[in-house]
């Protein structure tokens, strides 16, 4: 088989198996974030001592939105931090490396209630790394986890305290979270493809 023919063949195979279906619309995301903000306030009896820490990239955007919701519901400002967890990963040899972003925790987190925020909870390894990273900044009174989407398949004993939506997935599916700030639209989809190269 010539290289040209092989590429054509591969191309055809890839196209055949790709499909994308929506699981959360813009309104779904807005409502889920409103509910999660209420749940955070309920569980912690208000916004005192709260710090939201988003995990780059979309976790930070979600943390911003949760903080805006909490501000609206409760009238108090919650500090938002941003965490880059790449230096704490346990799978650095396996995956490609996103450019590092500066971690920015604007307040001392000692004896605070820290809510980690991320878009998708999958294996749990990102959250483990995030807890390690957080440890280097202090000793919070409590660490909680807020997630837009839980897709199952945990490899570590980690669970979320606040979940926007639970979605059963297969391991060969890819959950794509798009957000206004980075992708121009709020939308969550599942992509099914044998050839999908995104590591998420």
């Amino acid at each position: 088989m010539t290289a040209y023919k092989r590429d054509r063949f591969k191309h055809a195979m890839t196209r055949k198996t790709t499909s994308e279906r929506q699981i959360m619309s813009q309104d779904d995301i807005r409502r889920a974030l409103a509910r999660v903000a209420h749940e955070i306030l309920e569980r912690n009896r208000g916004a005192q001592e709260l710090v939201l820490v988003g995990i780059y990239t979309r976790g930070v955007l979600l943390a911003n939105r949760l903080a805006a919701n909490i501000g609206q519901f409760e009238g108090s400002e919650v500090p938002v931090g941003a965490l880059d967890i790449n230096l704490y990963r346990d799978d650095l040899q396996e995956r490609s490396r996103p450019v590092l972003r500066p971690t920015n925790i604007p307040v001392a987190i000692n004896d605070k209630r820290v809510v980690l925020v991320d878009d998708v909870l999958y294996t749990g390894r990102t959250i483990r790394a995030a807890m390690d990273a957080l440890n280097d900044f202090g000793r919070p009174k409590q660490v909680q986890l807020a997630i837009l989407l839980d897709r199952g398949h945990r490899e570590l004993p980690i669970r979320a305290d606040y979940v926007g939506q639970n979605i059963p997935t297969a391991t060969d599916e890819v959950v794509k979270v798009r957000m206004e700030e980075t992708d121009g639209v709020d939308r969550v989809t599942i992509v099914r493809s044998d050839d999908f190269k995104d590591s998420r």
Partner: peptide, 23 residues
């Protein structure tokens, strides 16, 4: 006034996500 205060608390997030190429 509250929503204004919240806006200042928002963190700016880079919109692109480049990768370090293998080397």
């Amino acid at each position: 006034s509250t929503s204004q205060a919240i806006e200042t608390a928002s963190l700016v997030v880079p919109t692109d996500s480049p990768h370090l190429p293998p080397r």
